[in-house]
C-alpha cells in the first residue's frame, strides 16, 4: 500500500529523485497488475513512483530499420497505431486477447514485461516478433533480446530501479498470428498461447519465430521449432511435424488453470492452426 506516490515529470527528474526515496519503492505504470495486488493486500512497497505520464516512455517512433514502442504506451493506443499494425502483426493479433477493453486503456507493454508473468499475452507476441527491450538506469542504458529478460515466473533481469524504456521491433515484412486457449473466448488468463512470426519467400519459410505463453516458467521462445522451420515449404506435413516438435520443447505444469499434458497437447494444436492461418 503506497504511503507516498511520487510523480516525476521527466526521466532526468526521475533519476534525480530516486536516491532520496524510501527503499521499498516500485514503479507504477498502468497499475493493472500491482494495484490489483495492492487491493488484495499483497503489495508492501511504501513508495510508488508513477511513471505513467513520462513523456520519454509514451510514444511510438519509427526509424528506417525499426519500430520503437514506448514502454508506457497504452495497449489500446498500440492497437490503433498504423505503424504497429504494419510491422507487428503477431502483437496486433494478440491485443484482442489482452484482458478487456477497459484494461487495455490502462495497461502498458512495459508493465506486462516487468511483471514477468509467463502468461503475458503482449510479451509473448513481442518475443515472437523478435523484439529487443531497452532498459535505463540513471545514465546507464542497455538493450537485450526481450526473450532474455525473463529468468523465471515473475523474475526478470531488471536490476533495482532499472526501467524498461522501449521495445524495438525490427521492420521486416512478415506474417503474424496469435492464438490463445483460455477459459472462454475472451478475457481470461491463458491455459496455453502461441505467437507466430513468419517471413516467407513464396511458399517457403525464410525465417520463423515462435513463442508460447503459459507453458514454461517464462514467456517461451521455441528455439528448436523456429530453427527447424527455416527453409522448409509450409506444407501440411511440415506443419504437423512442427506441431509435434514444439510439444517436445515446452515444459508446462499442472496448476489451477489447466493440466500439464493437456497444455502440451494444445501447444501442438495451436501451432498447427497458427501456421495454417498463415498458409491461407
Amino acid at each position: 500500500m503506497p504511503e507516498i506516490i511520487v510523480k516525476p515529470a521527466s526521466l532526468k527528474e526521475l533519476w534525480k529523485t530516486l536516491p532520496a526515496l524510501g527503499k521499498a519503492r516500485r514503479y507504477l505504470a498502468g497499475g493493472t497488475d500491482i494495484v490489483t495486488a495492492d487491493n488484495a493486500g499483497a503489495e508492501s512497497s511504501e513508495c510508488w513512483v508513477d511513471i505513467s505520464d513520462l513523456p520519454e516512455l509514451g510514444a511510438i517512433k519509427e526509424t528506417a530499420r525499426a519500430l520503437f514502442i514506448g514502454s508506457g504506451v497504452k495497449i489500446s493506443a498500440i492497437e490503433n497505431s498504423a505503424p504497429a499494425r504494419r510491422w507487428c502483426p503477431a502483437l496486433i493479433a494478440a491485443i484482442p486477447h489482452f484482458a478487456s477493453p477497459s484494461l487495455r486503456n490502462m495497461a502498458t507493454l512495459g508493465g506486462n514485461a516487468a511483471n514477468g508473468s509467463p502468461c503475458a499475452d503482449g510479451v509473448c507476441a513481442l518475443v515472437a516478433e523478435g523484439a529487443f527491450v531497452h532498459l535505463a538506469h540513471n545514465g546507464k542504458k542497455r538493450c537485450l533480446p526481450l526473450k532474455d529478460l525473463f529468468l523465471g515466473p515473475k523474475r526478470t533481469a531488471l536490476e533495482k530501479d532499472e526501467l524498461i524504456t522501449a521495445f524495438e521491433v525490427p521492420k521486416t515484412k512478415h506474417f503474424g498470428a496469435y492464438l490463445k486457449l483460455g477459459p472462454r473466448a475472451y478475457f481470461g488468463i491463458s491455459k496455453a498461447a502461441v505467437a507466430v512470426s513468419l517471413e516467407m519467400s513464396g511458399k517457403t519459410v525464410k525465417r520463423a519465430s515462435i513463442a508460447l505463453g503459459s507453458v514454461a516458467p517464462v514467456p517461451f521462445y521455441a528455439v528448436k521449432t523456429s530453427a527447424w522451420l527455416a527453409g522448409k515449404p509450409l506444407s501440411s506435413e511440415v506443419v504437423l511435424a512442427a506441431a509435434a516438435l514444439v510439444m517436445t520443447e515446452v515444459s508446462p505444469i499442472t496448476d489451477s488453470r489447466s493440466e500439464a499434458d493437456y497444455r502440451r497437447e494444445m501447444c501442438g494444436v495451436l501451432l498447427e492452426r497458427a501456421l495454417k492461418s498463415v498458409c491461407r
Binding site: P2, I5, K7, L28, G31, T32, V35, T36, N39, A40, W48, D50, S52, S76, A99, S100, P101, S102, L103, N105, M106
Partner: peptide, 29 residues
C-alpha cells in the same frame, strides 16, 4: 471485485472506459 475484472467501477477518463478500482485518486490529476 477490486481486480479489474467485473467492470462495476467503470468510469470514463479522458474519453476512455477505465476501472476506478485500479487507479489511485492522485492519478486523476
Amino acid at each position: 471485485c477490486g481486480q479489474g475484472t467485473c467492470g462495476a467501477c467503470t468510469v470514463i477518463m479522458d474519453g476512455r472506459a477505465v476501472y476506478a478500482c485500479l487507479l489511485y485518486a492522485m492519478q486523476a490529476e
